[in-house]
Amino acid sequence: MMSLPVMKAEGLTKIYGIGCPVCRESTGPGYETNICRECGAVVACGDISFELYPDEVLGIVGESGSGKSTLVKLLYFDSEATHGAIYINDSADNVLSLSPFQKRRIRNSRMGMVYQNPHYGLRMEVTSGGNISERLIMAGWRNIAAMRARASYLLRKTEIPVLRIDEPPANFSGGEQQRVQISKALSNNPSILFLDEVTTGLDLSVQARVLDLIRALQSNLHLSVIVVSHDLGVIRLLTTRTMVMKYGRVVESGLTDQILEDPQHHYTQLLVSSQL
């Protein structure tokens, strides 16, 4: 009774710069750099493959510059991969070879994204309800009353007073903005949710509420989630499997408790032992 992955990535690579034939083989943890010695291009992500299963939370951990946010941008089509393939559900078609229009359709119907900086995910001067409706319109909704009802429902779910539906996120606190962003990301009922450092920069009690909210939503809605964080506490709390990245490569992957208790790679051991 094995379930099929909801998303599969194969050899995903992102190179910033001209790129040359030796870029991938001359970078990575073995060379302690992600800059190609021949052409000077940066290999932000190199040959990354993984499977994401239904109702699973996968963590991506690593220091700044290790390529974790780039990887999520490739998966959400925010940025175009240099090589590689992404398969959604059990389809044999590489979605990266689809037209921009088709990619947008997949993104609007299947995916949700919450960025570290709410300015990327929200229009700060448009009302919260408007922000959510914008995404619903992209997913094909047209009835205004229905969109408003959906927006109220989501704001309630994410613990924002519905009274504030007509207020722009610019008036909100950092934690509230993050929760409006989560409402927006969930509005189209996505099956895959990306969370890129969503609690970084929030103070401790607000961080706890956002994390509790994410846990509750994940278990109620049975979402598949990819969580990017450099915070091992967040990874431990939210995820069941984890990939560790360094110099644009996955250096280790496994069950989260195994990664944290019995890390195999030099870098992961360093990371775990650096915990406060």
Binding site: G254, L255, Q258, E261, D262, Q264
Partner: peptide
């Protein structure tokens, strides 16, 4: 025990 639970490899 941790090996059997696979918290250790």
């Amino acid at each position: 025990l941790k090996c059997i639970y696979r918290a250790y490899l």
